[in-house]
């Protein structure tokens, strides 16, 4: 390859996409604060705002993975600081269960992360996001939609093979 091409390829290297659920009061505000303070960080997260981390349904997380997210980050208020008193604890309980499910599905630990980030911790947004992006870059794409297609194709082939054999036996 020419040098320019190599550079081009390098610059277009695979970028992970992380779906983030940030609570309105602490982490979303912290991400805004990072902006106001111009704290630069990796551009790989896409934030969905919810009022409280307690609103985050485990299904949202699994759905994100299934639809192609390489990582999912949930940000809530520190324990004891929840705007709704204890929504973050409620989510923490769910998260611990979900963690096991996600593990057993073979999705690497670093792809799912829960962080308590208060409204004043703009720099923590940077630290967490950069760290998560670096770890996921090392892991490579999760690519579940592609895998689903492959698995579906395999199944189709198998099914047609079986169907063919059944015809023969029939």
């Amino acid at each position: 390859m020419l040098k320019i091409e190599i550079e081009e390829a390098a610059s277009k290297q695979w970028q992970p996409k992380i779906v983030a659920f940030f609570c309105n009061w602490c982490t979303y505000t912290a991400a805004d604060l990072a902006g106001v303070s111009r704290i630069k960080h990796a551009p790989n997260i896409r934030v969905i705002r919810v009022m409280c981390s307690g609103r985050v349904d485990p299904q949202f997380i699994l759905d994100s993975f299934a639809k192609g997210a390489d990582g999912v980050l949930i940000g809530g208020c520190h324990p004891g600081d929840c705007h709704y008193q204890e929504g973050n604890y409620k989510f923490l309980r769910r998260f611990q269960m979900l963690r096991r499910v996600v593990d057993s599905l073979g999705i690497e630990k670093d792809r799912l992360r829960l962080e308590w980030i208060s409204a004043s911790e703009g720099d923590k947004v940077r630290i967490v996001v950069n760290d998560m992006v670096a770890k996921i870059k090392a892991l490579g794409p999760l690519g579940l939609p592609v895998k689903y297609k492959e698995w579906a194709n395999e199944m189709n082939v198998l099914e047609s093979e079986i169907a063919g054999k059944e015809e023969v036996y029939a």
Partner: peptide, 23 residues
């Protein structure tokens, strides 16, 4: 949110534009 959580915190115009389009 294209300013606080995008334009102000990223350096690469292409990545920023991609992020904006996703959102």
């Amino acid at each position: 949110n294209t300013r606080e959580q995008n334009a102000w915190v990223h350096l690469d115009p292409e990545a920023s534009t991609d992020k904006a389009m996703d959102l």
